[in-house]
Amino acid sequence: MTSPAPASTTASTPASPALRAIEATLTRANAELPALAPLLAAFGPLFAARARLRETAPGWTGPLPAFDAERFCQGVFVLAQMEHGQGFQDMSASLPQAAQHLLPVMAASFPALADELHSLLGAVESGELAPQALAAAAFGQAVAVPGVSAETLAFALSELVRPFVERQAQDLNALTKDVSWRQSMCPVCGGAPGMSVLRRIKDEAEFIQSHGGRRFLRCSCCATEWTMKRVSCPACGCEEPDELVVLHDPTRPFERADACRRCNSFVLCLDTGDMVDVPDVDVAALTLLPLELQAKAQGFAPLAKHPWSEL
């Protein structure tokens, strides 16, 4: 497999900060972890294509849904507060065009799936698979597409809707600003965290500043980030030092898997507190695959899986 194409090469406009971060993180990861080069080459262009779609996605249209801060503080996330539980807004109108952009990138990245992905694209372009059916299939409704397996369809469509979901979540997350959220599920969509990040927050206060960075959990569904107590298991709330295990490679101290012996779960963690340039979190999650495998080998289960988790 060839090394990944620069993330910005297919964009006609200058690379955005998100694309530049993806490109820089891929370049660094390829240099530091040559064993992961095939994986980076496969997923890197997909991350870049998703980022480009996210930047042009419409976001939440119309007024934001009603939000009750008191219910939110009690653990009712934003989408669960909607009257009829509609979830994210219908994005089907954007999907055919997005499929034309994303599916060829995926076909080039995953040659073993190329035939199925081309069949899927053909079904979308011919109208055989209507946009509404495309969206319904992406959110779990059983839809059969000739020549495409259920697994490939689920993988392709989840990647297809992800940029639109993430963009809508950015708008919805504005509702939760300055409101306390202490749950381990996503405050916007209720998804499970697939990743965590320690971020050093620039504090304008004239006091001694924290060096460790705050812990943010990142939703595996909509990429929303929210703060969580650092020394605790997000799955069961355990705070016993003897039960909490940190798996890490001594040569890469900023990467770790935070595991819990009480509930046998783990969440990957990237410590950016000492970093000059904060990496793209999706690419960073890919570079944490060795730790993910190590945690699983020790009997721990992830709170949420990545597309590459079963490779």
Partner: peptide
């Protein structure tokens, strides 16, 4: 440190946010 994407030690050590690097 910087080549390894880590902050210079003086910046990392600064407790008051006086030292900034980027």
């Amino acid at each position: 440190r910087v080549k390894a994407n880590l902050l210079p030690m003086c910046v990392k050590s600064c407790a008051m946010g006086a030292m900034n690097f980027g």
